[in-house]
Nucleic acid binder design. Structure first.
Lengths: 254, 254
DNA sequence: AAACCTTTAATTGTCGACAAAAAATCCCCG
DNA sequence: CGGGGATTTTTTGTCGACAATTAAAGGTTT
């Protein structure tokens, strides 16, 4: 028996993957431990380093973050509530894998919610808010032109997230944040690397309309933008059903 | 020392209140235990038997439902995420007490969300759906005319909830459900008993517009209905701050 | 060689235990 | 008689322990 080909019985051991970036050096407030773990996982999902379908065993997370299972379970519970992870009974939690139907409903909800948010933004936003929005927009374009995709993906999401924040409504902001993080998941799932949607400053046009007081126009532009985004997804899914159907439909010659 | 006036030291014992209706007779699926507890508490809040500010100690819930603290904590976590209960560090969880500002934001979010949902309802609803909606409406009116307030409150909420369901969008449905349950909380908090808002079939008019294909009209009617509802709240709050201010402002003569 | 059964380890579900924090009471002192 | 601490009790925060479930590999039979 050698190490490369374990011949022992039972289930093969899975090696805990590198996930946590920073180790907890000094003692921290006990209340924020949970938030730290939650944020760490969400960030990894948003920047697409944690791909959909990745298993998240509790024990591994415990070691990585240096906490007990109770904390990890609480975090997983919250992540599951936000549909970031999928929680199956008596099975490992996995990063959520939305189905094709889910994606349709997800974007439908996003369009509806952002359309509902825009009037509030127009009503509440001050000149300084628009200025900071423009600043963020420039950073975004900068990243896009540098082909820094992973960074750009985060910034593009941040724009929409900021819109939710500018609505000055905590609940709508939270809902939008949840939907956007799910959309990042979908992009990671359906968009092979390198295929970035080259957007021609669609965000900028939304801000233009907003600042000019044209709410309906902003809604129209944003709706079109989101539909573009959805349409550019490569709707192919490496499903087990598909391969099984192939194997059954064609009598294998090997 | 007698039982009516405990003179022992330390914190006085709190008696667990009657909360759980049915005892778990036979063994049930372990997966649904959590759902049962969650639903039980939400129901009590919706029917306003659990009033805002009521303390919910974990140990009491454990005894009442016959489960360990882990389960209870999971449920409380979920309830807190939905803003049904408020979870303060190292303190008992209490049924949420939204502030006056929260109420404004809450109704703002509700108006925005329902307005966003209505077009989807009009797009997806079949004739049978409208029929069942009408049936529900009649039950609601019946309860109103019988002055069965607690029942009516539940049915009135159920109407809006059903609208979310008819949008055929699980996310928007869930968000609306969360907002509506919070609104029930608010009504329980700001509306003294017996003061029911006598609505003149405002729900019916929404359905009329919807069935006639007049989405904008439905949105207008619903928006007005919700503003009415908010306006009828008695914006008085028996706050500890208020009574304290009273005591400090007026030199007591007793 | 394919299907079935057995074995084994991984993994979650749930619980009680212990420590820490907070609140209410009592005691002491002015 | 009132105020400030010490004390006790309650209550939550967190953890490891044990049982139950699931998945995977090995072995066996046809």
């Amino acid at each position: 028996m050698n190490a490369t080909a374990p011949k022992g019985r039972g289930r093969p051991k899975v090696r805990p993957q590198a996930l946590a970036g920073q180790a907890p050096a000094a003692r921290e407030k006990p209340a924020d431990k949970e938030q730290r773990i939650y944020a760490a996982i969400v960030d990894r999902v948003m920047e697409q380093r944690l791909k959909p379908g990745t298993r998240l065993p509790e024990a591994a997370l415990c070691e990585l973050f240096g906490v007990g299972r109770t904390l990890v379970q609480k975090v997983l519970q919250r992540l599951a509530h936000d549909h970031i992870v999928e929680l199956r009974p008596n099975r490992s939690a996995i990063v959520a894998m939305p189905s094709r139907e889910d994606v349709g409903k997800l974007f439908e909800a996003r369009r509806a919610l952002e359309a509902a948010v825009l009037p509030l933004v127009a009503a509440h936003a001050s000149r300084a808010d628009y200025a900071s929005l423009r600043r963020q927009l420039r950073k975004e374009q900068n990243a896009m032109h540098r082909y820094a995709q992973s960074e750009w993906a985060g910034l593009a999401s941040a724009f929409h997230l900021r819109l939710g924040e500018l609505s000055r409504n905590p609940m709508l902001h939270r809902y939008l944040a949840e939907i956007i993080s799910r959309c990042c998941l979908v992009v990671a799932l359906f968009q092979p690397p390198g295929n970035a949607t080259c957007e021609h400053d669609e965000h900028g046009r939304v801000v233009d309309c907003l600042e000019a007081g044209d709410v309906a126009g902003a809604q129209r532009e944003n709706d079109r933008h989101l539909r573009d985004l959805e349409a550019h997804l490569q709707l192919v899914e490496e499903d087990t059903d598909l391969s099984l159907a192939d194997m059954l439909g064609l009598p294998g010659r090997s």
